[in-house]
Simulated assay, not measured.
Amino acid sequence: MIMHQIKVLQSVVSTLLEGGRGVSGTANPKQPALAIQLYDREGCPFCRRVREVLTMLNLDFEVYPCPKNGTRFRPIAEQIGQEIGGSVQFPLLVDENTGVKLQGSQAIIDYLFQTYGKTGKTPAKWKNLSKQPVIGTLVSGARLMRGLKADSTNATKAPPAQMLQLWSFEASPYTRLVRERLCELELPYALHNVAKERWQDMGPAVLRLKPGPYVPLAGGKREREIVNMQGRLQVPYLIDPNTGVHLFESKDIIDYLNHTYC
């Protein structure tokens, strides 16, 4: 328990370093019919840039973890990378709604804003991003590089038959710990973004800026998703359709993943 709290503190430092990116998003996203597929390394600063934009656009997507030494999805990503560019780069995005396959954070970010943004244009702060993500590297350092390398003890286990479901937004310090472990265990999952849509949403679930019972924005995505979250909008929230397990707390989820899939 003490070690988990230390990891939480490290994750909180990472959130502060991110400067609020990956917290807020639109209440009415342009969610495509087929889920966007992201071949991703959780601890990679370039991948983080794309996930921050996905949170900003409040899009759900499928995550196929490709940590270093990974054997499940990394070979697939390498094959796609060879098809479109000669070698693989992470992040790598596949959008079956448009037939687009892209790699590299800037190309993916421009595509996401052009295809799923309200104006069809990349905002100025997301254009021409530095080729050396200094802050992103510091964020990874604060997390002691977790979520970058595959757990070798899990190499021979088959992935679950059905994809896990995770409710999250990028900058949530508690959810980050879960995503790191999912990446290390190479467990694919569908990520349901529940970005904060207005100031009343700000703050931890038990200590939001607006006191009293939480009421999501009428007509927003959070109002729709709270039905799928047992009426309790708190992240992380994990559903494993393979076992019927539903869990909220990060430590409980990580313990479950280790017990079930490691």
Rank of each mutant, 00 (worst) to 15 (best):
residue 35 A to D: 14
residue 49 R to M: 02
residue 53 V to Q: 09
residue 223 E to Y: 00
residue 204 P to M: 08
residue 245 V to D: 02
residue 115 T to I: 04
residue 72 R to H: 13
residue 80 I to K: 07
residue 28 N to A: 15
residue 105 S to K: 01
residue 9 L to Y: 11
residue 102 L to Q: 00
residue 90 F to W: 12
residue 32 P to W: 05
residue 216 P to V: 00
residue 148 L to M: 14
residue 108 I to G: 05
residue 59 L to K: 07
residue 221 K to E: 14
residue 209 L to I: 15
residue 89 Q to E: 06
residue 197 E to L: 12
residue 125 K to F: 12
residue 211 P to K: 13
residue 69 N to C: 12
residue 46 F to D: 02
residue 92 L to Y: 07
residue 158 A to W: 06
residue 89 Q to I: 08
residue 252 D to V: 04
residue 103 Q to W: 06
residue 114 Q to R: 02
residue 117 G to S: 08
residue 32 P to S: 02
residue 154 N to C: 06
residue 223 E to S: 03
residue 192 H to F: 10
residue 110 D to S: 04
residue 240 D to L: 07
residue 176 R to H: 14
residue 76 I to L: 13
residue 66 C to H: 09
residue 74 R to V: 15
residue 40 D to R: 10
residue 39 Y to G: 06
residue 124 A to F: 07
residue 215 V to E: 07
residue 254 I to T: 13
residue 194 V to D: 00
residue 242 N to E: 03
residue 162 Q to N: 15
residue 227 V to S: 07
residue 75 P to T: 07
residue 198 R to A: 14
residue 143 R to N: 13
residue 139 V to N: 01
residue 35 A to F: 10
residue 111 Y to R: 02
residue 37 Q to A: 15
residue 205 A to H: 09
residue 226 I to S: 02
residue 175 T to L: 03
residue 96 E to G: 11
residue 120 G to N: 06
residue 246 H to W: 05
residue 134 V to C: 03
residue 121 K to V: 01
residue 197 E to Y: 09
residue 79 Q to L: 05
residue 163 M to V: 13
residue 256 Y to C: 11
residue 200 Q to K: 06
residue 170 E to S: 14
residue 118 K to N: 15
residue 236 P to V: 01
residue 249 E to C: 01
residue 49 R to Y: 01
residue 97 N to C: 13
residue 74 R to I: 12
residue 53 V to C: 13
residue 71 T to R: 12
residue 131 K to L: 13
residue 43 G to K: 09
residue 191 L to N: 15
residue 184 E to W: 05
residue 203 G to E: 13
residue 28 N to D: 13
residue 162 Q to V: 03
residue 187 L to P: 08
residue 226 I to W: 02
residue 5 Q to T: 09
residue 107 A to D: 10
residue 254 I to C: 12
residue 90 F to I: 06
residue 162 Q to P: 07
residue 83 E to D: 06
residue 22 G to K: 10
residue 245 V to W: 04
residue 73 F to S: 06
residue 224 R to N: 11
residue 17 L to R: 10
residue 246 H to P: 03
residue 87 S to R: 11
residue 103 Q to T: 02
residue 109 I to N: 07
residue 114 Q to T: 03
residue 116 Y to R: 03
residue 90 F to T: 09
residue 17 L to E: 09
residue 244 G to E: 07
residue 228 N to C: 07
residue 199 W to T: 05
residue 109 I to D: 08
residue 184 E to V: 12
residue 75 P to A: 11
residue 24 S to C: 11
residue 257 L to N: 00
residue 45 P to V: 02
residue 248 F to W: 04
residue 7 K to N: 10
residue 20 G to S: 08
residue 94 V to L: 02
residue 139 V to G: 00
residue 25 G to V: 08
residue 132 Q to T: 11
residue 226 I to K: 01
